[in-house]
Design a binder for these strands. Structure first.
Length: 850
RNA sequence: GCGGGUGUGGCGGAACCGGCAGACGCACCGGAUUUAGGUUCCGGCGCCGCAAGGCGUGGGGGUUCGAAUCCCCCCACCCGCACCA
């Protein structure tokens, strides 16, 4: 008598067995290849969601497969535990961020463990552990010493209600995301990591990251934004407020003879000097700055300009002078904050020139000619790789590409001494100060006598004080009665601690390194880091394509320079995979005012509300969101169907990089399949059916093909395809006439193939079918190449590319014989005429050309 | 605006290097068994057509013996960046 598939019982039993065997503890073993599998660690919001389940299941598939192929595997888990939500919760309900965070971590760990991930929990840590952030402070000091940290004035987003700076992403339409207050742009002295010093290096190294998605590499490249151009000074006819020239940066020095004005940013030092001296200029600059506040509106914002009355002399056409304008579309923090305007070859300059009646002068045209901007056509801006004809050339031949002309112009400028070629980057330094409590304190002390000095290393960690209140806005560290008052470590005089804490992106920029030696008394342990680094497979969401991954790349380089990581870890993630989201239908009805009312999936049956029978509107494939109520809770799913069903389903329906839609029917189908496999295993375990040579051999051949295909699927992140092969093989086993021994063997090996996805069921089958020890510890099955080749093959036969028949022949049949059989097989479609040509693709197909 | 991606049955998707389009799953339809089951098992299922056959991978063109796959043009949707000189 066979027992039904009782997933909860099976899963608890095997999780316990793995624990006792200590199977997932990562142990460095120089005799074996290592594999470091990492999924982006979670923020402890309080509950795990299906996105976590999918992310960690993918990592677990890789980790379990690599373990089975003989690797020493490191597969850790931790918590990205600092951040604003904890403070918000404290403000809303009066608790302490630490208590809130630790309770959330405990709750999430409890939800995660029943999923059966092969994680080395002995390495778990949270970034809010003093042990972790203390080492982070140490890294900060080392980086400071190495010149990778700086303090400088910067324009930041200041929320006047909350009394803190906000990150750019926390500013929505120019307002604080929570307070709703209009954000001010304030210039404050802040801490920065000097990531822009590494811009070129970080860009060039992208080429080596072959196992990263091209999309992510491209996004990073665009973000870093390298440009090649010319820096040159435009001499003022009359010096003004101490300025004798206006330095300008341009990527199009080849259009210099088309210049018709020089523009400066409202924040340019010269503009500020002029504004200080003239109320009209000051008013204009004020107005121009305001327009730039909301980023989306920039597109439609009109170009505004003010003629300063100043004039500059053209460096090549010295008889010509150009007006100097202050213009709202010129950014102070790119280039020199000043441009020369060439309206014929720049859409923005043209719009500006037409509005203020400035000249438009073409310097090149298409080789076949083109409508001229000076006659009302749009600005002519062809790709730089396109050859054009220069009518007013700075340097080089008449016909050349824009790129060549730029280089020629730079070369001329350098020879003649009126400019120099420069490479610039869009990437700016990483502002790491936050006027927040729940973050890693910046280990610095401000002394009136000695300036800003580091906290001595033997005084680390600088601990967050526990006795803080959140009843008022602003930074509790700043208003704490005693915490910030300390003696200067240099002169012993009265001094103040830095009360800013670090951006939480710092915490997540080196956790992967800490996992290699989570209990070490230094940030990393050289031997452990040398063994485990790099991360062989990193898995996470595309939303981190730029910030987290770029910061981590910077940090790894910084840690190499400061001796905390070996040189090979400069690029810490060898392979990156970005997985898609888990989506779900949204069910909505309308209230009396026509506003949408959302309903949880469990409130809906057959398109109607269970409670009232009202029909619901269904919106397909939306990202799971609590506010839309289109969520399913992993804990509920696991309790109802089991972890294996949840794991199987999130991998089965879509390729891992794409979104997968969670449906109740799909989950049920997954469960049904696993129950069927379980039933087959039980039947095979008890069966005494005698061997059937032909059927046994056929099953064995299919088994080897399945081993081959599933292995390939797993190794290439084709988890959905691997699962499809396992479905097909299950159907085949169920129908097979093979004897009991052959079926037991087939199902035992199938259990191993399923184990990365459904480890508990695999373990249960393994033990039912006489497997030795634990399935999770068994070596991965290897397909016998001889079994992958059939003795006879079936070739489709086409006539003019359309399938018209097939022939089955011994594998070694010669082409002449195949041709004869093929023509015979499709004779009916040839109407008796002899074929004009026959193409035989060995082992694949035959095409008869009629 | 610039850059990138995607488009295959009613649905999710498969198809290696240009070689049988639609694997596998869902939904649906039929049959068997059980008929109190989260049943189970067998079969069918791209479209048109009684059939023979024809048509079919967003649309149009091309290369090829042969195209979902390569090339050109177009359409739709999604993502990233966005006054970066």
């Amino acid at each position: 008598m066979s027992a039904r598939y009782d997933a909860p019982a099976i899963e608890a039993r095997w999780q316990d067995a793995w624990d006792r065997a200590g199977l997932f503890r990562a142990v460095a073993d120089p005799a074996r290849p290592k594999c470091y599998v990492l999924e982006m660690f979670p923020y402890p919001s309080g509950r795990i969601h299906m996105g976590h389940v999918r992310n960690y299941t993918m990592g677990d598939v890789v980790a379990r497969h690599r373990r089975a192929t003989g690797h020493a595997v490191l597969h850790p888990m931790g918590w990205d535990a600092f951040g604003l939500p904890a403070e918000n919760a404290a403000m809303a309900s009066g608790g302490h961020p630490k208590d809130w965070t630790l309770a959330n971590i405990a709750a999430m760990r409890d939800q995660m463990k029943p999923l059966g991930f092969s994680i080395d929990w002995s390495r778990e840590f949270a970034t809010c552990d003093p042990a972790y952030y203390g080492h982070q402070q140490r890294l900060f000091l080392d980086m400071w010493e190495a010149g990778l940290v700086t303090r400088k004035a910067a324009v930041v987003n200041w929320d006047p209600v909350e009394n803190t700076v906000l990150a750019n992403e926390q500013v929505v339409d120019g307002r604080g995301w929570r307070s709703g207050a209009e954000v001010e742009r304030r210039e404050l002295t802040q801490w920065f990591f000097r990531i822009s010093d590494m811009a070129g290096e970080l860009l060039d190294a992208l080429d080596g990251l072959e196992a990263w998605p091209a999309k992510v590499r491209l996004m990073q490249a665009n973000w870093i934004g390298r440009s090649r151009g010319l820096e040159m000074a435009w001499p003022l006819v009359e010096p003004s407020h101490g300025h004798e020239t206006i330095p300008v940066y341009t990527t199009r020095p080849d259009t210099l003879l088309g210049a018709s004005f020089v523009g400066i940013s409202p924040d340019h030092p010269l503009a500020r000097a002029l504004a200080a001296a003239d109320a009209g200029v000051a008013a204009f600059c004020e107005e121009a700055r305001k327009g730039a506040a909301t980023e989306e509106a920039i597109e439609t914002a009109p170009k505004l300009g003010l003629d300063t009355g100043l004039r500059v002399r053209h460096p090549l056409e010295t008889g010509r002078t150009l007006p100097v304008w202050i213009a709202n579309f010129i950014l102070m923090d790119y280039g020199t904050g000043a441009i020369f305007g060439c309206p014929a070859h720049d859409a923005r300059d043209l719009e500006f020139a037409r509005k203020y009646g400035l000249p438009v002068i073409s310097t090149f045209e298409a080789e076949g000619g083109n409508p001229l901007p000076e006659e009302g056509a749009p600005a002519f801006v062809p790709p730089r790789t396109e050859r054009v004809r220069y009518t007013r050339s700075v340097a080089g031949p008449e016909h050349q590409t824009g790129a060549d002309a730029v280089e020629a112009a730079i070369a001329r400028a350098e020879v003649e001494g009126w400019g120099r070629g420069v490479t610039r980057y869009r990437l700016r330094d990483w502002l790491l100060s936050r006027q927040r409590y729940w973050g890693c304190p910046i280990p610095a002390i401000h002394c009136p006598a000695c300036g800003t000095v580091p906290v001595p290393r033997d005084q680390l960690p600088v601990l967050l004080p526990d006795d803080v209140t959140f009843d008022r806005p602003g930074n509790p560290l700043d208003r704490h009665p005693t915490w910030k008052h300390v003696a200067c470590p240099r002169c012993g005089g009265q001094a103040q601690r830095e009360t800013d804490t670090m951006d939480t992106f710092v915490d997540s920029s080196w956790y992967f390194a800490r996992f290699t030696a989570p209990h070490a008394s230094t940030p990393t342990d050289p031997a452990e880091a040398a063994y485990w680094m790099n991360v062989d497979q990193y898995i996470g969401g595309i939303e981190h394509a730029i910030l987290h991954l770029l910061y981590s790349r910077f940090f790894a380089r910084a840690m190499v320079r400061t001796g905390h990581l070996p040189p090979k870890a400069a690029e810490p993630f060898d392979a990156l995979f970005t997985q898609g989201m888990v989506t779900h239908e949204i069910y909505q009805t309308r209230d009396a005012q026509g506003r949408p009312v959302y309903h949880f999936p469990e409130e809906v049956e057959d398109g109607r509300l269970r409670s009232t029978g009202e029909a619901v509107e269904i919106i397909p494939s939306a990202k799971m969101s609590k506010s839309k109520k289109n969520v399913v809770d992993p804990e509920t799913i696991v309790r109802r169907w089991g972890a294996d069903t949840a794991r199987w389903f999130v991998l089965s329906d879509s390729p891992p990089e794409r979104d997968v839609e969670w449906t109740a029917a799909g989950a049920e189908a997954a469960w049904r399949h696993l129950a069927r496999v379980h039933r087959l295993a039980q039947e095979a375990a008890l069966s005494e059916a005698p061997a059937v040579p032909e059927a046994d051999a056929a099953l064995e051949r299919a088994l080897h093909r399945t081993i081959h295909e599933v292995t390939q699927g797993i190794e290439s992140f084709g988890f959905n395809a691997a699962i499809a092969r396992l479905y097909a093989f299950t159907n085949l086993v169920a129908r097979s006439e093979a004897g009991a021994e052959a079926k037991r063997r087939a199902l035992r090996i199938m259990a191993q193939l399923m184990a990365p996805m459904t480890p508990h069921l695999a373990e249960e089958m393994w033990s039912l079918l006489g497997g030795e020890g634990l399935c999770a510890a068994a070596p991965w099955p290897v397909a016998d190449p001889a079994q992958l080749i059939d003795d006879t093959i079936t070739l489709p036969v086409q006539v003019n590319g359309k399938r018209r028949g097939e022939i089955t022949v011994p594998r070694d049949t010669g082409p002449v014989e195949i041709e004869r059989l093929a023509v015979e097989a499709v004779a009916r479609s040839l109407d008796g005429a002899p074929p004009r040509k026959v193409i035989v693709v060995p082992g694949r197909i035959v095409n008869v050309v009629a």
